[in-house]
Design a binder for these strands. Structure first.
Length: 268
DNA sequence: ATGACTCATCCAATGAGA
């Protein structure tokens, strides 16, 4: 089973690129971020024609997350993170699909720092960590997939010294990410590629793609049950080179079949 | 240090992204 995350930076403007990538990559489940679309303009028909059922949590102009599945039904389990009822930003959607709990998330950027946007990022991080702990405690197979807006280490940025004051890289944020992992999550891309420079985002500015001046900020975190099934994790960086593309590239994991489930099917 | 680029917004100039 292949599960992907892709910050599309505008789901309607990006539709041709998204459909092309879906046709080529054939992921079973996809988490999308930055829909930048109100719910009524989400391209559900075009995605349905491409073979995907969808669940979406949109918002006019900004944010917005969605979960696509071609594997079967999607059952919503949570829309928005608890803990801040006045928060109207559409950044979290969670569902059960194909035997897995999938959380699609778009963590706040947090710049400029210091300021209210940075404070909001830290609060949102805490709310995510609370939910993540609940999900781990459930013992279910869970994947947290999305744009975390966190550069975890020096290895994940083309020029660390340029980013020391940035809300994506300051120690406070990197520590929050490390604490999240310490709950028991596996950073799938890093697990499969230790010691490798690997990016998921390249700025539109300054020919960042041409210079390979990237950041690794889109992450796929696996609960222990799914970490055992991890087979491959990659970035479809070629998509970043397409016309009218997003500044992010899709990231995906391939999971081995669930041995427990297979045993039960065989009845042994 | 700034701004470069791209998206979405009642179409123009602005906010947001990272």
């Amino acid at each position: 089973m292949k599960i992907a995350t892709y910050n599309v930076n505008g789901v309607n403007g990006r539709l041709p690129v998204l459909l092309r990538w879906l046709a080529e990559a054939r992921p079973d489940i996809v988490c999308l971020q930055e829909l930048k679309s109100p719910d009524e303009r989400f391209p559900a028909d075009a995605l349905s024609d491409a073979g995907y059922r969808a669940l979406w949590h949109g918002q006019k102009s900004w944010n917005g997350v969605a979960i696509l599945s071609r594997a079967g039904m999607i059952h919503e389990t949570l829309r928005g993170l608890p803990g801040e009822p006045e928060d109207t930003q559409s950044r979290y959607l969670e569902a059960a699909a194909n035997g897995v709990i999938v959380a699609a998330l778009y963590l706040p950027n947090g710049n400029p720092r210091p300021g209210p946007k940075f404070d909001y990022k830290l609060r949102w991080f805490e709310r995510l960590a609370s939910r993540a702990q609940e999900l781990l405690d459930s013992g279910l197979p869970v994947i947290l997939a999305g744009d975390f807006n966190v550069i975890p280490t020096d290895q994940d940025v083309y020029k660390p010294e340029r980013w020391t004051e940035d809300a994506l890289f300051v120690p406070e944020v990197r520590e929050a990410y490390a604490r999240l992992l310490d709950q028991g999550w596996t950073d799938a891309l890093r697990k499969m590629h230790p010691g490798e420079r690997i990016y998921t985002f390249w700025d539109y500015f300054r020919n960042a793609w041409g210079r390979d001046a990237g950041l690794r900020i889109d992450h796929l975190l696996l609960s222990p049950a799914l970490a055992k099934r991890l087979k491959a994790a990659e970035v479809d960086s070629f998509v970043r080179g397409w016309e009218k593309t997003s500044d992010h590239a899709p990231v995906w994991v391939e999971l081995k079949p669930d041995r427990t489930a297979r045993r039960s099917i065989r009845g042994s």
